[in-house]
C-alpha cells in the first residue's frame, strides 16, 4: 500500500475525480450533483466550472488560465481562490491530484 499523505495543491497538481466520485447533471432538479460515498454535494456554477476542468490531466495552472479566459478575469485574482477551492475538495477526498508533485 502506498504511504498516504495529504496532498498539497500547487500549480503543478493535476486534479481529477477518483473512481468513486461522479459529477452528473440532475435533470429533475436542473442542477449539477457531485456524488460521493454517503454524500451528495450541490456545487454552484463557478464550482461546476472548476470541477468540470478536473480531468486528471490538466494542471492547476492550465485550469486557472482556462477559467481566466472564459470568465474574462485576471489570473492573479482567481488563482488563489481556485487553489483554495481545490485544496478544500482534495482534503475531503473528493478530488485526487495525480502527477508531478512540487
Amino acid at each position: 500500500m502506498p504511504a498516504r499523505t495529504r496532498h498539497v495543491v500547487t500549480n503543478l497538481s493535476q486534479p481529477g475525480f477518483p473512481a468513486y466520485v461522479r459529477l452528473q447533471f440532475d435533470e429533475l432538479r436542473g442542477r449539477w450533483a457531485l456524488l460521493a460515498p454517503e454524500k451528495v454535494y450541490w456545487p454552484d456554477d463557478i464550482s461546476v466550472a472548476i470541477l468540470n476542468r478536473c480531468t486528471g490531466e490538466a494542471t492547476v495552472s492550465e485550469i486557472i488560465l482556462d477559467l481566466a479566459e472564459e470568465f474574462e478575469a485576471p489570473v492573479e485574482e482567481i488563482g488563489p481562490d481556485v487553489r483554495d477551492f481545490l485544496q478544500e475538495w482534495s482534503d475531503r477526498l473528493v478530488i485526487r491530484c495525480g502527477g508531478r508533485k512540487a
Partner: peptide, 8 residues
C-alpha cells in the same frame, strides 16, 4: 488525518 482519511 485531513486529506488522508475521512472520519465521519
Amino acid at each position: 488525518l485531513t486529506g488522508i482519511l475521512n472520519i465521519d
